[in-house]
Design a protein around this nucleic acid. Structure first.
Length: 272
DNA sequence: CTTTAAACCTGGTCGC
DNA sequence: TGCGACCAGGTTTAAA
């Protein structure tokens, strides 16, 4: 479920609970992820203080000092606070107990994963080849144009390539292209400099708007007690097949197409 | 090197 | 109420 904004919302939600906390216990109910959780995971964490929690693309990075652990929420992962004596739920694969709070990582499909990292090694392989952070200073229209120029694939597929830009997923790829009035079918190498400029801007705005929507769910007391990793945002095109285009003065209808086995939504009337 | 397809999983929904 | 088909926000691996 989670793309960059959802992962950032998880990070912002758990950071106040866990930064500065000492890990008391780690309980793993199921290690069987695409890459199994390593055997030394629990022993490496227990007794250490979580100094800080970061995000890179869709990954969560927990810093314990000279070492730490890294997590991915996959397609169906979420994290929630686990209060004292609160029962575990089905698919709670990882329980982390600290001197402040306990959290549960729940992931029905187990497409997510957890691993260890050390400062004295190179960056973890999960994040070593990621492209720039779209909301960071290393991302701009020139960089995007340079990268897309080498790609003959449709722009929608390129936006999902984490090595080009980190953090965009299937929803926000469609949303950013709609805002930029660019068809998902356009070949990446054929985008003009002006279109790259526009797309850079809409990628930023669509992610930023979603983070703010996630932030508002964090401020809602009911939601902060609940699951982090999923919040319903109002999408302009995603999931709106056969509905009216939301662009003012456009009377187009949203179309759903399949590109490399993923669905794309767009308005053929105003996206060219 | 590139691009495409299949694989990894569970659960919800829809049509019969 | 049940069953099969299909769909889902991601990434890696094998194959072409």
């Amino acid at each position: 479920m989670p793309e960059l904004p959802e992962v950032e919302t998880v990070r912002a939600g758990i950071a106040p609970w866990l930064e500065g906390a000492t890990i008391i216990n780690v309980k793993i109910n199921n290690r069987a992820f695409r890459i199994p959780i390593p055997d030394q995971f629990e022993a490496t964490l227990i007794g250490n203080i979580i100094e800080s929690i970061h995000r890179r693309g869709k990954y969560l990075i927990f810093n314990l000092g000279a070492q730490g652990f890294i997590g991915h929420l996959g397609m169906s992962g979420s994290i929630r606070r686990l209060d004292l004596n609160e029962p575990e739920r089905k698919h709670d694969h990882l329980i982390l107990v600290s001197d402040k709070v306990s959290i549960a990582f729940n992931d029905p499909r187990r497409f997510g994963g957890w691993d260890l990292w050390r400062h004295d090694s190179n960056a973890h392989k999960w994040i070593s080849n990621l492209g720039p952070e779209p909301l960071g200073n290393d991302f701009n229209a020139e960089i995007l144009s340079q990268k897309l120029h080498k790609k003959s694939a449709p722009i929608k597929q390129c936006l999902l390539n984490q090595n080009l830009i980190a953090g965009i997923g299937n929803i926000y790829a469609s949303e950013a292209l709609w805002r930029a009035e660019i068809s998902p079918l356009r070949l990446a190498c054929e985008l003009t400099a002006n279109e790259c400029e526009k797309l850079t801007s809409t990628i930023r705005s669509v992610l930023q708007d979603a983070i703010e929507a996630g932030g508002s769910t964090l401020r809602d007391h009911r939601n902060i007690e609940g699951e982090l990793g999923y919040f319903q945002h109002r999408f302009d095109v995603y999931g709106r097949a056969n509905e009216k285009c939301r662009r003012p003065d456009c009377d187009g209808i949203i179309t759903k197409i399949t590109q490399s086995a993923r669905s794309s939504f767009f308005c053929a009337h105003c996206q060219y």
